[in-house]
Simulated assay, not measured.
Amino acid sequence: MFFKKKNINGKTFNQYIRYKWMRVIIETMGLSMNLFMNGIKSNNYNIPDIQGKKIKTGSKNMRKSGFIFFIILLLLVPCVCLGVETNESAAAGKVTVTDVVIDPSVLMTGDVGMVTFTVENTGSSNVAISDAHLISKDITVLNSDIYLGSRTIGAGTTMKFTFTILANQPENIYYPAFYLNYKDAGSLRYNIPVRVEEPQLAISVAGIPETYSKGVTSKINIQLGNAKSVNMTGITVIPSGEGIQCNRTSFFIGDLGPHTEKSVAFEIIPSVTTNLNFNVSYTCGMNSHQTSYSIPVVLGTDKLAAEPILNNIEVTTGTSGSVLSG
């Protein structure tokens, strides 16, 4: 005879069977205790058998039978409970975490990220879940109560659990724990490593002259380096400075992979002594970051500039002015 697992009066099939067995055992234990106690009070006691007939027995036999019956029932109680629990535990043992995705894969301090767990039920029975949590004493989980409701992972199916986290800790590796709590079979725990790094985009400038000449074009090379383990995307460099003309209002570099660098050249024409600022914006995952770099622009005489020298020049002064020849 085959039973289909379904809800009966608000209970799962295993809970219903357990309830019925316990009820039968409790009622039978009450009957055995009654038999035992009445055997003590009287020498003879008539009890109905299954067919409604009367059975007459002595008090000694009644006490002995009632006591043995009571002991047997006590032994049956854990057997029934463990039998049902074993079935639930066996089904839950087929549930496992098959994939974890952290986006971005490395978080900057202060970044918000997403952690998605893929859970698969490889067994042939449905598994009921009461709730799921991501717990950490270091990483803040922004939606810790999102999976409080019960749900069921069907046999041979997968289910995803996504949590939003805030990396509000200094650079380190942290290990939050994913808990999947079953209705009737304990829980599943799965720890994951989350790497947090300090936000840092290295900026350097090459070819900086000691002084700049007013109205003269100078070339400056900006180098950007990513010394971190995370991919930086959407990198844009914007130059600015009072009294400075630049051949580019902005420069889009794009992506900068881990442990790589790129360079971009700017041409500027200063008119006053000022500061030249390079504002750099970029993203890591869903998080935006900004940094800046400034260099002083001081007007003066360019020591490397050519000085014209005139030789063999004769100056003749007349009534109409001076004449140069040579």
Results as ranks from 00 to 15, higher is better:
residue 228 K to H: 08
residue 226 N to T: 12
residue 190 Y to C: 05
residue 206 A to Q: 13
residue 219 K to L: 06
residue 228 K to L: 15
residue 209 P to L: 04
residue 220 I to S: 13
residue 201 L to G: 09
residue 228 K to S: 14
residue 227 A to E: 13
residue 197 E to G: 08
residue 199 P to I: 00
residue 188 L to Q: 05
residue 219 K to V: 14
residue 192 I to A: 04
residue 192 I to K: 05
residue 211 T to Q: 09
residue 228 K to R: 08
residue 202 A to D: 11
residue 194 V to Y: 01
residue 217 T to G: 01
residue 217 T to F: 06
residue 203 I to S: 12
residue 212 Y to C: 02
residue 192 I to Q: 01
residue 219 K to H: 03
residue 191 N to I: 08
residue 226 N to C: 07
residue 220 I to V: 15
residue 220 I to Y: 15
residue 217 T to Y: 12
residue 201 L to F: 10
residue 202 A to E: 10
residue 205 V to M: 11
residue 199 P to H: 03
residue 209 P to T: 08
residue 206 A to T: 12
residue 219 K to D: 13
residue 192 I to E: 00
residue 198 E to N: 09
residue 208 I to N: 14
residue 220 I to G: 09
residue 212 Y to F: 13
residue 189 R to E: 10
residue 212 Y to K: 01
residue 222 I to G: 07
residue 191 N to H: 04
residue 222 I to R: 03
residue 223 Q to S: 10
residue 204 S to A: 15
residue 223 Q to I: 15
residue 201 L to R: 06
residue 201 L to S: 05
residue 216 V to M: 15
residue 213 S to L: 09
residue 215 G to E: 10
residue 227 A to Y: 03
residue 214 K to W: 02
residue 221 N to S: 14
residue 202 A to H: 14
residue 205 V to Y: 07
residue 219 K to C: 05
residue 198 E to K: 01
residue 214 K to V: 02
residue 193 P to E: 12
residue 191 N to K: 10
residue 222 I to Q: 07
residue 191 N to C: 07
residue 188 L to Y: 08
residue 190 Y to E: 11
residue 200 Q to N: 12
residue 216 V to K: 14
